[in-house]
Design a protein around this nucleic acid. Sequence first.
DNA 1: TATAAAAGTTAGGTTAATCTAACAAAAATT
DNA 2: AATTTTTGTTAGATTAACCTAACTTTTATA
Lengths: 236, 236
Amino acid sequence: MLSATEENYLKALIKISEKNSVDGKVGTNELAVDLGVKPATVNDMLKRLKDKKLIDYEKYGKIKITKSGKKSGIEIIRRHRLWETFLFDKLKFTWDEVHEVAELLEHVNNPKLIERLDEFLNHPQFDPHGDVIPNSKGKIIIHFKKTLSNAKVGQAVKMVAMKENSDVLLKHLFELGLGINKTLKVIKIQPFDLSMNILVDKKAITISNKLAENIFVVCKECKVIGECNKKMCELE
Amino acid sequence: MLSATEENYLKALIKISEKNSVDGKVGTNELAVDLGVKPATVNDMLKRLKDKKLIDYEKYGKIKITKSGKKSGIEIIRRHRLWETFLFDKLKFTWDEVHEVAELLEHVNNPKLIERLDEFLNHPQFDPHGDVIPNSKGKIIIHFKKTLSNAKVGQAVKMVAMKENSDVLLKHLFELGLGINKTLKVIKIQPFDLSMNILVDKKAITISNKLAENIFVVCKECKVIGECNKKMCELE
DNA sequence: TATAAAAGTTAGGTTAATCTAACAAAAATT
DNA sequence: AATTTTTGTTAGATTAACCTAACTTTTATA
């Protein structure tokens, strides 16, 4: 069992090591700054996290999260992002309000709660900030996050997710014949309002720029979600 | 600001003093047993709660919660019961599973979260156990909780709430012309399946016993919710 | 390369929440 | 009323999470 504080350390460790993405190693001060505590406090905690085998760490060395630490940390991130999605989609919080509240809710540790919440939210893939929600196995499906509004005329893209999961959006997409895994080809973009003429299932439809901004796509080459990489991707 | 532990002490104090309803005073051991800690621990906490003016307390005397303590405690109970309702209505937890999870969620202290949740759940008046949910002003509307299935032939009752707030139930009630504050008069009860013929807005309808068990009513005399008292009430 | 700056550590202290063991007061019973 | 039982209190420890102040190691730079 992890305390809320320990969970926050793991989360911070993952966040920082992803930013300084060289070798994923983090310093004591860096962690202290991020968590808003003193380096001495971090030092205490490092001993405990090491005892629990959540980090690899030697005196005066750098901190590296272990596999088990990362697994736990990703679970916290999953909870955080699911709660953010709940607050945004269901309770109508704005995207800038959700983080603070999710920061509290994420420490409620009950696996069934999270699975049911995920189900209730329709297994969302992105939180309201557009960050990927790790799945229940702790796998982060990394795709090259771009909205349809980034696509150029002539490009073929595949829809992989939507920014929000509201009933109105879902219904609208359904009526247009749009959905996850559909291939969309951009035929024309109206310069005036940026609305798009696109081809879906051999049918031409028109969608507004607002809608295009809510649809996440990958380039057609990225056939399997998660296998898209920057060099291959046609989308900027 | 109250810690989760302090919140639990207040909740326990309200619960126990309502049970031993003579003068609402509680003993140290009693509290210790309820909270699953040692009396010595309770003693420490009593000092802190007294400093914060949440309880009245003198050495070797009985504990009495103050007005301010009660206000905070009722707020926790409100959160708890709203979360229970959420878990039951939306996440399809069973009524016996909700308590444990709500016990964790209730300590997330964010007023906007609770107000939005209340709204999202359609301002429920009862939790899945049938306990009253205090309103946002901390007022507990006490009505004589009985379901329509308790009414006798010829009785006129007023609908005050429903046991759950699921979409299916809400829709069903709407289609039948039933809703909060409607007056219902029982015309006949079928002995075979206990289904009822009732009069609503001068229209006769038939409802199943299952539905009748999900509708909370007060006797017609209790015109204003909260002013119903046992002696007056026709319902047993 | 010597030294100053930055980064990291240790020792010792605090607070909340818990404990055990010993003691004191109040209540119940003989 | 005296004694036993129950109830409540105190003192002293522990653990997690924090702190400050002093110290040490590493790194950067003059």
